[in-house]
Design a protein around this nucleic acid. Structure first.
Length: 502
RNA sequence: GGCGGCAUGGCCAAGUGGUAAGGCAGAGGAUUGCAAAUCCUUUACCCCCAGUUCGAAUCUGGGUGCCGCCUCCA
């Protein structure tokens, strides 16, 4: 079993072989911190989080580096429009980034360099490129000369000669006039009056967009890394230019595998800040969508395909998560009844054949270019009896002998779900600080209490009396009233009614 | 115009040569006063046309439709 990944560079799916045995270096293009992250970012970082988790689960030592672009025109605009500073805008959005990503259970990168703190490396890299004749300065700007990069266009499938005509007529501004080739791009931009700037051998200014990633990769991970990640919209020009810069400086390949995730669409169109059709992660979570629902929604599609964001699809994911999450939680929330231990399922040696086969199918799906949709299918299969069990227990049934045997299945489910970053939702804060979570969940009273137990019991008793008189209108009214308060009633054989808080 | 991708049931979505995973929604039955939950059963001529093959959703050619990149973008 070996992991195969689709490499944009070769346009084929290749067996993944890291540079060093059992070690993987990954660089993931991060965000420009001028605003909150939207669902496009969520998808990208969820998918790459799963790649990372899967590699770790497979025993690789992973070093994961992700940058913050905190020097940028849009940040400056934002700062100007709100009368604050570039630093203030960046700082605020970096904090927001962590809040959102933590909520989505995305593991934090091992290192998160910021452009403003990597200026030495950036200047050094530009200097190297200048020395090698791949960079030239013009009126305070420094540009990369794409004609000096023989392989330019290899990632995005572009041919410099063919593209030249089309590109040159497009923009006829001052910057274009300074360039020797229309595809040449800024390594260093001379400061404009009033802008924050940093000193450099070419005058005060700031780095171009692409150079920071090249400099960070070199500083954090070396000349050649195993995997470089990003959204498909970064293939050109960003990643193409990164390759050109880094490889011109080092003479070595920048990354062995280039992986790109598909876009999130809204109504068939790409979600992007410039189109204004975006939903922020924060807004979505605040609207009551659980982080795990979003994760499930993202992982139900293959990472390279476009993903259409619709209310209906999200609702389906929410319902799906309700079942899967319930199955994941059952071992812990009903531990008192089931007595299952949480120790890891291990490598599978001791698993019964049915579970071992399930695990193999999960691995095969993930090995196949991270087929998380198929992997999730396996999780749902595993979860089915557990979900049913969870529902029965929650409604007051007692587990049967057949149920108790499901412990191994539960542990495997938890282990595999963890690879996808899927964890049971955090229980809401307990009102009684002294009680253990297991007891609280058993009693079904983790939520803040709108109605006291006594009041509920009274209504339940009234309903029982109404039912006895075959006054079903009253009985149903009482049930509806309780439902409005989030109390669900379950009639069981023998005239017993149990209730639980939703 | 150049480069790349996608088209599978009511919706979402796997499957890339041997008679179609999974999720959501729906239907029938058991159970229930009715619900909910649970259990059983059930729902696809894989965009079109031609070809290769014993056999194609899966390969080839053509067509149609949709999307992304080529400008900041996850």
């Amino acid at each position: 079993m070996t992991l195969r990944l689709t490499n944009t560079l070769t346009r084929t799916t290749e067996t993944f072989i890291p540079l060093k045995d059992r070690e993987v270096s990954i660089y993931c293009c991060g965000v420009t911190v001028y605003d909150l992250c939207h669902l496009g970012h969520a998808r990208s970082y969820i998918v790459w989080d799963v790649l990372r988790r899967y590699l770790m689960w497979q025993g690789y030592r992973v070093t994961f580096v992700q940058n913050f672009t905190d020097i940028d025109d849009k940040i400056l605009q934002r700062a100007a429009s709100e009368g604050s500073s570039m630093d203030a805008v960046s700082e605020r959005n970096i904090e927001a980034f962590f809040t959102d990503m933590d909520a989505l259970n995305i593991l934090r990168a091992d290192r998160m360099p910021r452009a403003t703190r990597c200026l030495d490396g950036i200047r050094a890299l530009i200097g190297d490129l200048e020395q090698r004749g791949a960079a030239y300065s013009a009126d305070g700007d420094v540009y990369f000369a794409v004609m000096k990069a023989p392989g330019y266009g290899k990632l995005s499938g572009r041919d410099l000669a063919e593209q030249q005509g089309g590109a040159s007529g497009r923009t006829a501004d001052v910057e274009e006039a300074r360039k020797r080739h229309p595809f040449d791009f800024a390594l260093w931009k001379g400061a404009k009056p009033g802008e924050p700037s940093f000193p450099s051998p070419w005058g005060a200014g700031r780095p171009g967009w692409h150079i920071e990633c090249s400099a960070m990769v070199r500083a954090e991970l070396g000349d050649t890394i195993d995997i470089h990640l990003g959204g498909a919209d970064l293939i050109f020009p960003h990643h193409e230019n990164e390759i050109a810069q880094s490889e011109a400086a080092s003479g070595k390949p920048l990354a062995r595998y280039w992986l790109h995730n598909g876009m999130v669409n809204v109504g068939g169109e790409k979600m992007s800040k410039s189109l204004g059709n975006f939903t922020t992660i924060r807004a979505l979570l605040e609207s009551g969508v659980s982080p795990m629902t979003l994760r499930l929604f993202v992982l139900q599609a293959h990472y390279r395909k476009p993903l259409d964001f619709t209310a209906a699809a999200l609702e389906a994911a929410a319902t799906g998560w309700k079942g899967l999450g319930g199955a994941l939680a059952v071992g812990r929330s009903q531990q008192g009844l089931l007595g299952w231990s949480e120790s890891a399922a291990g490598s599978g040696a001791a698993l019964p054949e049915e579970l071992a086969a399930s695990r193999r199918r999960f691995v095969a799906a993930m090995d196949d270019d991270l087929n998380t949709a198929a992997a999730l299918g396996e999780l749902f299969e595993l979860a089915r009896p557990l979900r049913a069990l969870a529902n029965r227990l929650q409604r007051g049934d007692l587990p049967s002998e057949a149920d108790r045997v499901l412990g191994g299945r539960w542990r495997l489910l938890v282990e595999l779900a963890e690879v996808l970053g899927l964890q049971p939702d955090q229980p809401r804060p307990l009102t009684a600080p002294g009680s253990s979570s297991a007891e609280a969940n058993l009693a079904g009273c983790t939520a803040p209490q709108a109605l006291h137990d006594g009041a509920i019991e009274t209504m339940v008793a009234e309903r029982k009396a109404a039912k006895a008189n075959r006054d079903f209108a009253t009985a149903d009214r009482l049930r509806d009233e309780l439902r409005e308060q989030g109390i669900e009633l379950v009639d069981k054989p023998g005239g017993i009614t149990v209730w639980l808080r939703g």
